[in-house]
Amino acid sequence: MRSKLRALTGAAIVVLATSVSMSSGASAAPAPSNGSRSSAVLVGGRCNGSWVNVNATVEAQSRPQADSGYVFTLYAGETVPCRKIVVGVDYKACGVNDANGWILVQDDLRRHDGTPGWSGYIPSVCTSDR
């Protein structure tokens, strides 16, 4: 588990470094011609601690995929416990196109609708680490 986390963190650093160099005028390498996508998480919160701040109202999904099934809603300004970040199906959210990072949030507290216990994936680009 720790080796996977280290590999993911290393990949995130590479993505961040690439993003910084691109903003300074460097050009990105062309996408692979076979249509494959990078497995690196692109932008957003990382769940580095145990909590993330929710920066926009989002609908949590049952899997790291935008159309996998609504579970619950989180609202801008909430801070929620997070368990991990994963690379999932690409999505567009919070002003970012082709994002792919999903954060698993879960807790056993009652949500806004009164249902006990919940877990779901939210777009990482709509969060920041606490």
Score class of each variant (00 low, 15 high):
Val43Met: 13
Arg63Glu: 10
Ser62Gly: 11
Asn55Tyr: 13
Arg63Gly: 09
Cys82Asp: 01
Arg83Ala: 03
Val71Asp: 08
Tyr75Lys: 12
Gly44Ile: 00
Gln61Ile: 05
Phe72Met: 13
Asn48Pro: 06
Val52Tyr: 01
Val80Tyr: 02
Phe72Gln: 12
Cys82His: 01
Ala56Lys: 12
Val58Lys: 04
Asp67Arg: 14
Cys47Asn: 00
Ser62Pro: 10
Lys84Pro: 00
Thr73Ala: 11
Asn55Gln: 15
Tyr75Ala: 12
Cys82Ala: 08
Tyr70Val: 13
Gln61Phe: 04
Gly69Asn: 08
Val43His: 13
Thr73Ile: 11
Tyr70Arg: 14
Gln61Tyr: 05
Gly88Met: 04
Pro81Gln: 06
Thr79Pro: 06
Pro64Lys: 03
Arg83Gln: 06
Val43Trp: 09
Val80Ser: 02
Ser62Leu: 10
Gly88Val: 03
Ala66Ile: 15
Tyr75Val: 10
Thr57Lys: 12
Gln61Asp: 06
Thr57Ala: 12
Thr79Asn: 08
Gly77Gln: 06
Asn55Trp: 11
Val87Trp: 03
Val54Thr: 10
Arg83Leu: 02
Ser62Asn: 11
Asn48Phe: 02
Pro64Asp: 03
Tyr70Asp: 15
Val80Asn: 03
Gly45Ile: 00
Asn55His: 13
Ala60Leu: 07
Val80Arg: 01
Gly69Gln: 09
Ser50Val: 09
Ala60Cys: 10
Asn55Asp: 15
Thr73Met: 10
Thr57Phe: 13
Phe72Leu: 15
Ala76Thr: 12
Thr73Arg: 11
Val43Ile: 14
Val80Pro: 02
Pro64Gln: 04
Val71Lys: 07
Asn53Gly: 08
Ala60Thr: 07
Asp67Cys: 14
Val86Gln: 00
Gly44Trp: 00
Ser50Cys: 11
Asn48Lys: 06
Ala60Pro: 08
Thr57Gln: 14
Val86Ala: 01
Tyr70Phe: 14
Gly49Tyr: 05
Thr79Asp: 06
Gly88Lys: 03
Cys82Tyr: 01
Glu59Asn: 15
Arg46Thr: 02
Lys84Val: 00
Glu59Arg: 15
